[in-house]
């Protein structure tokens, strides 16, 4: 049976990547995986790099590799997702990701422990690892 639909907008700094009605959203917040259906309670959540799945219907899913971001459920049940990156998983280049990951690991190793520099490298590493998993998972 078809579920109730609700409106979702996905924005990145480089423009809008999705603006349509869906039945369900699946993504990951800093607390863990989350699924959102229609009439969800108002929410403001911080998103971690992961795969973002937007279910237009049971058979039709739009997928993105999301960077860090935020998810907001408004009082009317509509959802706004802001993410720094939103890539089509099929365009991710595993070789390039591996190279960037190596650079991030180098930076992490070189930085002083507990410095902001090291924290930044760790964040980059986490995002790249998540993207790599999505690219490999197909």
């Amino acid at each position: 049976m078809a579920r109730t639909k609700f409106h979702v907008e996905v924005l990145t700094p480089e423009g809008e990547v999705f603006n349509d009605d869906v039945e369900m959203i699946a993504t990951k917040t800093v607390g863990g995986s989350i699924g959102i259906l229609a009439h969800h309670q108002p929410l403001l959540a911080m998103l971690d790099p992961a795969e973002l799945r937007l279910y237009r219907s049971e058979s039709e899913t739009v997928r993105f590799a999301q960077g860090e971001g935020y998810l907001q459920v408004a009082g009317d049940g509509s959802v706004l997702i802001l993410v720094e990156d939103a890539h089509d998983p099929t365009t991710l280049d595993t070789a390039e990701l591996a190279e960037q990951l190596r650079a991030a690991e180098d930076a992490f190793a070189k930085a002083d422990s507990h410095s902001e520099e090291q924290r930044v490298a760790a964040r980059d590493k986490r995002r790249l690892e998540a993207f790599q998993r999505i690219a490999e998972g197909g």
Binding site: V30, Q41, P42, L43, L44, A45, E68, Y70, V73, G75
Partner: peptide, 20 residues
């Protein structure tokens, strides 16, 4: 913002969201 009076869930705490 969608009903500022409505109960809004924060995950994690608003302070931590602000830190990012």
């Amino acid at each position: 913002v969608g009903g500022a009076q409505a109960l809004v869930d924060y995950e994690p705490e608003p302070e931590e969201i602000l830190a990012r």
